[in-house]
Simulated scan of single mutants.
Amino acid sequence: MLIDKSITGFLAELKSDSPAPGGGSAAALVGAIGAALGIMVGNLTLGSAKYETVHEQCKGVSLDFEERLASLEKYIDEDTEVFKQVMKAYKLPKNTDEEKQVRIKAIQEFLKAASTLPFTVARTCLDVLELSVKIISIGNVNAASDAAVAGRMAEAAMWSAIYNVRINLGSIKDADFVADMKSRVDDIVARSEVLMDQLVKTANEKI
């Protein structure tokens, strides 16, 4: 599994001529790093008596970060597996009309899955961004830069996942599915812009 590899091992897989792992798994990894950084800021806040008044609030934020981290760790491998299914579908036989229809149906089915998973990654990374805004506001000021990096990485990971959604939508024939997914992506982007404004404002005040 990719999640069990060393950093150098993962990078070696990523830079190879194999199409998977690719941008989707990388996006999940970057989001996971952002979540881990957020947890670190939480731990540094909980470890300081100076911030005792926000300890309970910080515990809740840290637990939410942990939940997103666990999901993103899982998505690193899931994205690669979904993409492999798409590639298998494209390799199905197409010698007869029946085979062609089976192949087309399989391709469309797995392209939808390959759009839905990175959308889930993007939505999870949006959550990490929102949590980063919370932790930079209440957390240990000495770790404010780490909280800001957590948010920046979450946004970068979110956009990376969105690009993977969009490229797959271009090959999907189900117009309703495509329209719905585009609308949901637009909602994520709009929310992220508000959160990034908050993150930057707070970071500029504290760093």
Rank of each mutant, 00 (worst) to 15 (best):
Asn43Ser: 03
Asn43Met: 06
Leu44Cys: 11
Thr45Asn: 10
Leu46Trp: 03
Ala49Cys: 04
Ala49Pro: 12
Lys50Asp: 13
Tyr51Glu: 07
Glu52Ser: 13
Thr53Pro: 04
His55Met: 02
His55Trp: 08
Glu56Lys: 15
Gln57Lys: 15
Lys59Ser: 09
Lys59Asp: 09
Gly60Lys: 14
Gly60Asp: 14
Ser62Ile: 07
Leu63Arg: 14
Leu63Val: 15
Phe65Ala: 05
Glu66Val: 03
Leu72Phe: 06
Tyr75Arg: 03
Asp77Thr: 13
Glu78Asn: 09
Thr80Lys: 11
Glu81Asn: 10
Val82Gln: 00
Phe83Ser: 09
Lys84Cys: 05
Val86Tyr: 01
Met87Arg: 12
Met87Leu: 13
Ala89Cys: 04
Ala89Met: 03
Tyr90Cys: 07
Lys91Gln: 13
Thr96Gln: 01
Glu99Arg: 07
Gln101Tyr: 00
Val102Ser: 02
Ile104Glu: 13
Ala106Glu: 13
Ala106Asp: 05
Gln108Met: 06
Gln108Pro: 06
Glu109Ser: 10
Leu111Cys: 04
Lys112Leu: 01
Lys112Gln: 12
Thr116Pro: 04
Leu117Pro: 07
Pro118Ser: 09
Thr120Gln: 11
Thr120Asp: 14
Thr120Met: 08
Thr120Arg: 13
Val121Trp: 01
Val121Tyr: 04
Ala122His: 06
Thr124Val: 08
Thr124Ser: 15
Glu130Leu: 09
Glu130Arg: 13
Val133Phe: 02
Val133Ile: 04
Lys134Ile: 02
Ile136Asn: 03
Ile136Trp: 08
Ser137Lys: 14
Ser137Met: 07
Ser137Gly: 11
Ile138Val: 11
Ile138Glu: 02
Ala143Gly: 03
Ala147Tyr: 00
Arg152Asn: 14
Ala154Cys: 06
Ala156Trp: 00
Ala157Ile: 08
Ser160Gly: 14
Ser160Phe: 01
Ala161Gln: 04
Ile162Ala: 11
Tyr163Gln: 13
Asn164Tyr: 03
Asn164Ile: 06
Arg166Asn: 14
Ile167Thr: 11
Leu169Asp: 02
Ser171Phe: 14
Ile172Gln: 06
Lys173Ser: 15
Asp174Trp: 12
Ala175Gly: 04
Phe177Arg: 05
Val178Asp: 11
Ala179Phe: 11
Ala179Ile: 06
Ala179Ser: 14
Asp180Cys: 10
Met181Phe: 08
Lys182Trp: 12
Ser183Thr: 14
Arg184Lys: 15
Arg184Glu: 12
Val185Thr: 06
Asp186Lys: 12
Asp186Pro: 03
Ile188Glu: 01
Ala190Trp: 09
Ala190Met: 11
